[in-house]
Design a protein around this nucleic acid. Structure first.
Length: 987
RNA sequence: GGUCGAUUAGCUCAGCGGUAGAGCACUGCAUUGACAUUGCAGGGGUCAGAAGUUCGAUCCUUCUAUCGACCACCA
């Protein structure tokens, strides 16, 4: 006999180890079977399991476990991502925290990378153990790490091949630069956030104090402002970049500035005698209606300006070093400014290299942080009187005595931040490696258009197209140390040799040339993009590659469609000449119960492991109040946490968590995780556990084979049919990635059908006298529970395995049993109709009893009037059962009702409850009236519809006949109830 | 600005051209019978608003309102 209660803690880890030891997670190797593979989205080696992982991996495990039970040759490919920036950050922080004065640079590259590796060996991969706690049935024997040697070979081959095809190239471009990590990052790693910013307005004086008439007109062409000016007004949110201006641009149609286009103006910063003059040019980019309509062009520090500068051949001057400080190198400002001025005047030729080397930062600002420099520039310009002034807005409009103050607009501006570092990104002109993504994207777009790869839900394809069709070159080089080193070597004169290994690079270079390898590493996502085939042994032509590529499905969140999905599509099609997966299932993001994103810094995280193992309230509070972004909010977080989870979390177990996530995995974008639901599904596990105990107590024949056609009892034939209906629904739902429907179907079958009805209906049989009936029912009961354990297994692998193990002497794990949902559906419609009637009857009698408050212990006589032959047979066949479940004193057929009884209608028959003692005639009439009212409404609606000629003529015939039948049935019920009411009212 | 999505029971959410569903919460009854981590019964919804298509709209179309996500972005 199994224990009185199921304790997940006592079983889960033991069961998992049992599976692993028995090699259950390995592919079957059955080459005649269909292959089914999924690659795990490799979690960061630094990571720990959060609710998003729990959802993601639960869904994959459900798919994998079902496929495995279906006899497919299954591989769930596990592994981890080296996560370049994230991991380097962790180890750098450790160095900083260790108190010594060691840092990355003082250690040197080799030693630092060694430290990262040893950290990885020690504490990396926590998350994989957490995945095991969740029950993930990954093929651990084939675990991979994106920095593994063989994966590195794949990376190098891909790089070299793309380089040789011209699809990877090195170029000086404006890139997003992270001054904290001192590396370039791709535009996907930049987060644009709205922040409070300021816009300053400055006057750029015209060269030689020239003047012009500045005229503003309104929409009707009336002059609203006309004045003589010797300057052009410029607005900027980043005054420190003025030092690198190469021009001022106005729109070609902007009449205000037409008189001065082509003239020079002066940047009002720096030592007066050496200020630079820059040309006023025209370009389509400036919007005449925004600000002054004139834009300063700083090609080296702004992406829009970069485009204008390229179009207009405007020099681009880099102002900052890699840390985001104003440059200190190079010649004096005076010397550079002079050259720059000759260039601006067209008196000197220039080339990119010379321009890039020039330092146009005046000595006073050199070495300043860019934000400090900003303040200095503003102060200096304002002090000189070159800020645009307005009357102090604090004074009233007409107040002529109002002092003049500099115009500073406070406004929301979008600012780019590094998604890892959180610092403001600086566009910088640097040499980087790029992938020609546009070329690679074309087949990847086509693969989705043609349906070779399908997004589920399909509307995600729009997001995919949207990005892919406007894709920009992918910057893949990173100035980091942790990652795949770029397989490029340089000769002394800058000769480039791209080869998979240094040996091969030397062979290309010829003897005697000294080579140095490119210092940079590749974007982490470059190696992730190869994951579906690099993990299977590519570039070797292995059996695994042939068997497990392409995968069946990729399961992931929408947040990495661009980062990862799109890039796997591009690389897979390029190098494998085939899509990497047939379906892309995009699941929702898990949020807290209020729909807020779970975030450690907000203190609303629910750790999946805490739901599995349970956590005390104090520990939960402690966890949530550490690492808050605003530590002063700790009391508030504590209050909320204690209010919402006064008892912390029970140890619900992995099964309950998994089932919850599956049941909530609908097609929407968000899942608001509710702990109450986890508790509810834990109860579901308990319910199954107790049902199994009941079966054991009644000597259910677990492991029995049954032939449904040989079953004699309607109850047993009925439950077998119900099982197949449920199994079919579960199979179809999972195949369609409708995890919630699948979970609902199995839940409903087990609880509402099997436990609530079958177990109750089978009790009299199991505890009866007839040996044949007992045997058949014990077999059916055991068989059905066996099937239930299999059907539920992908959702709740642990409890089903425990029950499988403890109920019979089995010759294998439930996880390797044949999936029951593929069996040919067996149905007995007569038995279904018969039991359907019995269930309806019992429910109805119970309902009446409850409505009129018949004491639970009271047994009442009930008779059936107007039964058809079929119903009469049911009455006879199930009399004992019905009397027991509905608590009846007697249950007979009759011709007429005794006076003072209560009636209810089941199909064509009137059911008469002789409970006059318990009822008040007036109340009963009211009760019937209420029912009659409801019926009347429905009948009127149906009559109206059926009376509508257009409906009868145009609606499908089956709909019409269905509604006719329904109307007839309702009318019959109404008539019978009406009679009952009249009889009662007459008393 | 572009794209996608949401608005259904007190709460969290399914559903979807033809009788509105689940879980939790709520109400009444049941306590040593597999299970109170339970059972039985029940209350509760003009399916955001408006117009249209249709024999018929919660569902399709358009518009409006509110909320959200992603992408881009005006110096």
């Amino acid at each position: 006999m199994i224990d009185q209660r199921y304790d997940p803690k006592a079983h889960e880890q033991r069961i998992y180890q049992g599976w692993e030891a028995a090699g259950c997670f390995k592919p079957s190797g059955d080459t005649s079977a269909e292959a089914y593979s999924i690659v795990i989205p490799p979690p960061n080696v630094t990571g720990s399991l959060h609710m998003g992982h729990a959802l993601n991996n639960t869904l994959q495990d459900i798919l994998i476990r079902m496929a495995r039970m279906q006899g497919k040759n299954v591989r769930w490919q596990p592994g981890m991502d080296h996560a370049g920036i994230a991991t380097q950050m962790v180890v750098e922080r450790q160095l900083a925290a260790s108190g010594g004065n060691e840092d990355r640079r003082s250690l040197g590259r080799e030693e630092f990378v060694k430290r990262v590796w040893s950290w990885k060996e020690e504490s990396g991969g926590t998350i994989l153990n957490q995945l095991k706690r969740l029950g993930a049935s990954c093929d651990w024997d084939n675990e991979r790490f994106t920095l593994d040697e063989d994966l590195n070979r794949a990376v190098n081959k891909v790089f070299v091949d793309l380089y040789n095809e011209g699809l990877i190239y090195r170029a000086k471009r404006l890139v997003n630069w992270d001054p904290h990590f001192q590396t370039a990052i791709s535009n996907l790693e930049v987060e644009n956030k709205e922040v409070d910013g300021h816009m300053w307005h400055f006057k750029y004086p015209l060269a030689d104090r020239q003047t012009y008439t500045y005229v503003e007109k309104d929409e009707d062409g009336n002059v609203t402002l006309e004045e003589t000016r010797d300057y052009i007004s410029i607005a900027t949110t980043r005054p420190e970049t003025m030092l690198g201006d190469g021009a001022v641009a106005v729109h070609p149609d902007d009449a205000r500035y037409a008189p001065i286009v082509g003239k020079l103006c002066e940047i009002p910063v720096g030592p007066k005698q050496h200020r630079r003059l820059i040309p006023i040019i025209t370009d389509e980019y400036p919007d005449p209606d925004f600000g002054s309509g004139a834009v300063k062009i700083t090609g080296a520090h702004d992406f829009n300006d970069y485009q204008v500068a390229k179009r207009g051949k405007i020099p681009m001057y880099s102002l900052m070093d890699e840390k985001g400080f104003m440059r200190e190198d190079g010649k004096s400002y005076e010397q550079e400014a002079e050259i720059a001025q000759r260039i601006a005047e067209g008196n000197e030729d220039w080339d990119d290299a010379k321009i890039a080397a020039m330092n146009l930062v005046p000595e006073a600002y050199r070495g300043l942080d860019r934000f400090v420099a900003r303040t200095a520039v503003i102060d200096d310009i304002t002090a000189e009187g070159l800020a645009v002034m307005i009357p102090d807005p604090k004074h009233k409009d007409e107040d002529v005595s109002a002092p003049m103050v500099p115009l500073v607009e406070n406004k929301k501006i979008m600012q780019p931040f590094g998604d890892r570092s959180g610092v403001v990104i600086e566009p910088m002109l640097t040499d980087q490696w790029f992938v020609d993504a546009e070329t690679l994207a074309k087949p990847a777009i086509e693969a989705v258009r043609s349906g070779s790869t399908q997004f589920v839900p399909e509307n995600w394809d729009k997001t995919y197209y949207n990005w892919m069709e406007n894709i920009e070159p992918w910057c893949i080089s990173r100035q980091l140390w942790w990652g795949h080193r770029i397989p490029v070597w340089y000769g002394p004169a800058g000769e480039v040799f791209c080869a998979p290994t240094e040996v091969e690079a030397r062979a290309l270079a010829g003897t005697g040339m000294s080579l140095t390898q490119d210092e940079d590493v590749l974007d982490t996502w470059f190696s992730s993009a190869l994951w579906p085939f690099s993990t299977q042994g590519w570039p070797n032509d292995t059996d695994d590659v042939k068997t497990f590529y392409p995968g069946a499905v990729l399961v992931t969140g929408f947040d990495i469609i661009f980062f990862w999905v799109a890039r796997m599509m591009m690389m897979g099609l390029k190098f494998m000449d085939d899509i990497p997966f047939k379906d892309v299932y995009i699941h929702a993001i898990v949020r807290d119960e209020d729909g807020k994103k779970m975030s450690k810094s907000e203190g609303n995280v629910i750790d999946p492991v805490d739901l599995i193992d349970g956590i005390e309230p104090d520990a939960l509070v402690a966890k949530r109040t550490t690492g808050l972004r605003q530590p002063e909010k700790a009391p508030q977080v504590e209050k909320q946490t204690r209010k919402r989870y006064p008892k912390g979390f029970d140890a619900y177990g992995a099964d309950a968590l998994r089932f919850t996530l599956a049941a909530m995995a609908t097609k929407g974008r968000d899942i608001n995780l509710s702990v109450d639901r986890v508790a509810g599904y834990r109860n579901f596990g308990t319910k199954l556990w107790n049902a199994t105990r009941f079966a054991q107590m009644n000597e259910a024949a677990f492991g029995a084979e049954i032939d449904p056609n040989a079953l004699k009892l309607a109850v047993n034939r009925w439950i077998v049919g119900e099982f197949y209906t449920a199994a079919d629904e579960v199979s179809r739902a999972i195949a369609d990635y409708r995890f919630n429907d699948a979970a609902d179907a199995v839940y409903h079958f087990i609880w509402d059908v099997f436990c609530d009805w079958y177990l109750e209906l089978s009790k009299p049989l199991l505890q009866g006298e007839d040996a044949g009936e007992i045997k058949e029912t014990r077999e059916t009961l055991g068989w059905t529970l066996d099937q239930i354990l299999k059907l539920l297994h992908p959702f709740m692998p642990f409890i089903t395995e425990v029950l499988w193990d403890q109920t019979a002497d089995r010759d294998g794990f439930v996880m390797l049993q044949a999936w029951p949902g593929d069996a040919e559906a067996w149905q007995d419609h007569d038995a279904a109709a018969e039991m359907g009637w019995v269930i309806k009857l019992i429910s109805q009698i119970r309902s009446v009893r409850s409505d009129v408050n018949v004491p639970a212990g009271a047994k009442v006589p009930v008779s059936v009037i107007g039964a058809t032959a079929n119903t009469a047979r049911c009455v006879d066949a199930h009399r004992e059962l019905i009397m027991r479940l509905a608590r009846l004193e007697k249950f007979t057929l009759a011709d007429a009702a005794p006076a003072g009884s209560v009636k209810t209608i089941v199909d064509e028959a009137t059911i008469v409850l002789e409970i006059a003692d318990f009822i008040d005639a007036g109340e009963e009439v009211a009760r019937l009236d209420k029912q009659l009212g409801k019926l009347g409404g429905e009948i009127t609606g149906l009559e109206k519809r059926l009376g509508n000629e257009a409906f009868v003529a145009k609606a499908p015939a089956d709909v019409v006949s269905e509604q006719r039948e329904r109307l007839a049935e309702l009318q019959g019920t109404r008539d019978k109830l009406g009679q009952a009411r009249e009889q009662l009212a007459a008393l």
